[in-house]
Design a protein around this nucleic acid. Structure first.
Lengths: 247, 247
DNA sequence: TCAACACTTTTTCTCGAGATTTTTATATTT
DNA sequence: AAATATAAAAATCTCGAGAAAAAGTGTTGA
């Protein structure tokens, strides 16, 4: 993943199909962890998962190791793998760091982006807006919205020339998406996010760096509030036993 | 690595010994890549490396996958692994991103660090200074210096409460260490780094955030100059054939 | 001389089985 | 009854061998 993200083209990895079983398993696992199919803290038993993902044990282990460095999975000595736990403290950290990274990326993007980039921003915003309109009607619309929201944020900073900043942004976005989906499980997507996206889009195309970063910061921080008001049992829930003995 | 770095204690991973063969191979490989034993672009053949590192093929593959997400190794479809290539453009990116991350970390560290932290900063600086004195005499002193330099930079930001910022800092430091060691292969460590470290240490303990960040920024950027003046054949050298066909 | 093709060799990728370690369950002792 | 010790069970970690793919080699033909 970081391979393509860092060194290769700017082509989205989602487009190209996986070249190896390891990569395929890695992406499916990552998606399922982010979407909460594998909830935080769940024990990831290789023997069981190899059937579910239809790959050998060694292959699955390699995929899990990839997720370890992404901090979506933790490996504990000789005690196997586990979905990375969540906590409010961790999400506060993620959010603040994301603000730092993403505003810097947006600043650079606004400073350096060309007309083509502006076009892509408007296009991504339009696609996102359409998905937002459909949110109440169809049930399947939320997956669309999630995808287009990710693309919108990605396109916004796509003119930032730093591969490393983009790499870190992707990691942090994925992390916060995991939290957001948990909070959205109860609370629906609020109405005012569209207005925020509108402001963000306008300020960006107008090349108003300060305004855009301000809106973006508030936009990101708003998700933190949503998670703060989440029932506490969600945060400490560890599906398969938080068997964390006092050591 | 990110496991310990992100979720566990602040204990340095170097201290605790590896719990599995995968982790052991991962660390040895990482060290050898950073130190240039495996030069940039080198093909990493599992069949050969398994003897060198004395582990099975599967184990070595898992270790390599861990290095992929660290961006020290790149995996190419069905064409095996390779040490991540280097370029001036990449190092400029690393350097700028490192300035962004590390100055923010230092700012937070200065704002939140307690007396104990100040003590650790002074101690790390002292140890680094001693190593710098020995640089000309003994040949083995450079490894000491590298280690203590890393610790000094780590301790400086150790009071920053963000695990994520510290995580990213570690990744970027490792990346730039790889470049620095290449430039140091010819040029020795210049005299004035000690003066820079002194200024950095003084400003930090004096809680002068702006001055400290300014010195740190210049300090990091200085390494970029050193690499810029490096013979170009170093940068594009790919030991085992840059077999990058036009595709 | 160069290009295209088939063949051989090397390397990667994948899977299943054996050895350790951790965890769970049971039995014994205080 | 609580705690410790022992034994069984499950899971992890590791290795080596077989299938698939890539790279290399040599031959043939224009």
């Amino acid at each position: 993943m970081s391979d393509a993200a860092l060194h290769h083209s700017a082509a989205p990895e989602a487009a190209m199909e996986p070249k190896t079983l390891v990569e395929g398993a890695y992406r499916r696992l990552r998606r399922n962890i982010v979407e909460g199919v594998h909830p935080p803290g769940e024990k990831l038993r290789v023997e069981h998962l190899k059937e579910q993902y239809d790959v050998g044990a060694g292959t699955l282990r390699e995929a899990l190791q990839l997720l370890v460095t992404d901090a979506l999975v933790v490996a504990q000595g000789q005690r196997g793998f586990r979905v990375a736990p969540i906590s409010l403290k961790d999400f506060e950290d993620i959010t603040r760091t994301r603000v730092l990274i993403e505003t810097e990326a947006l600043r650079q993007s606004i400073a350096l982006g060309d007309d083509d980039w502006e076009g892509r921003v408007l296009a991504a915003f339009h696609r996102l807006s359409r998905a937002e309109e459909r949110l109440d009607d169809e049930a399947s619309a939320r997956e669309d919205w999630e995808e287009r929201n990710r693309v919108f944020h990605e396109v916004l900073i796509s003119a930032c020339p730093s591969r490393w900043i983009q790499h870190f942004q992707q990691i942090l976005y994925r992390q916060s998406e995991r939290y957001r989906r948990l909070s959205l499980f109860r609370n629906p997507i609020p109405r005012d996010v569209h207005a925020e996206h509108q402001l963000l889009c306008d300020a960006t195309v107008a090349r108003d760096s300060e305004a855009a970063c301000k809106v973006l910061t508030e936009h990101i921080l708003r998700t933190l509030d949503a998670v703060r008001h989440m029932p506490t049992e969600f945060l400490n829930a560890a599906e398969n036993g938080p068997k964390v003995r006092p050591a």
